[in-house]
């Protein structure tokens, strides 16, 4: 499925920051992670990830360094900075509110909180 451009623009940053929350990574690995998470349902134009990463870096949310890939080639790695972690916490709150509202309207959408509690929606739970 090709998602609406505005929607992609809105969730790309929190998605990338969340992936980097698990540790340092690089562009291609981040995209593979997105592919896995969406089960192939979401198609990104691959290259568009990179301007988003660079913007996150310009905003001071992530730091980058050039390291070596297994092949010996140069590869650019990105890591979450403290400011990025803070921004992500804030974004998570906003998305929780948005998902909760939509979940109540559409039914069946839940947001699993870190404590394992489900909120919003009800009925058969489909995890987002």
């Amino acid at each position: 499925m090709k998602l609406n451009k505005d929607l992609v623009a809105a969730y790309a940053a929190p998605l990338i920051l969340s992936i980097l929350e698990d540790g340092e990574s690089y562009g291609y690995a981040i995209l593979e992670r997105v592919r896995t998470l969406s089960g192939g349902a979401v198609e990104w134009t691959d290259g568009m990830l990179y301007p988003v990463l660079h913007r996150l870096e310009a905003n001071g949310y992530v730091a980058s360094r050039w390291g070596a890939a297994e092949s010996g080639r140069r590869r650019k790695y990105y890591a979450l900075k403290a400011a990025g972690r803070e921004a992500l916490t804030d974004q998570k709150e906003q998305w929780r509110v948005a998902v909760k509202m939509l979940g109540q309207l559409w039914g069946g959408l839940t947001w699993k909180t870190s404590s394992g509690r489900s909120s919003a929606g009800g009925g058969a739970s489909r995890r987002l």
């Binding site: 562009g27 995209l31 990179y50 890939a69 092949s71 080639r73 140069r74 650019k76």
Partner: peptide, 13 residues
């Protein structure tokens, strides 16, 4: 630097 990064992506893909 940008082109190198994109080239790396192309090679991985």
């Amino acid at each position: 630097d940008v082109i190198d990064e994109l080239e790396g992506h192309l090679r991985d893909e």
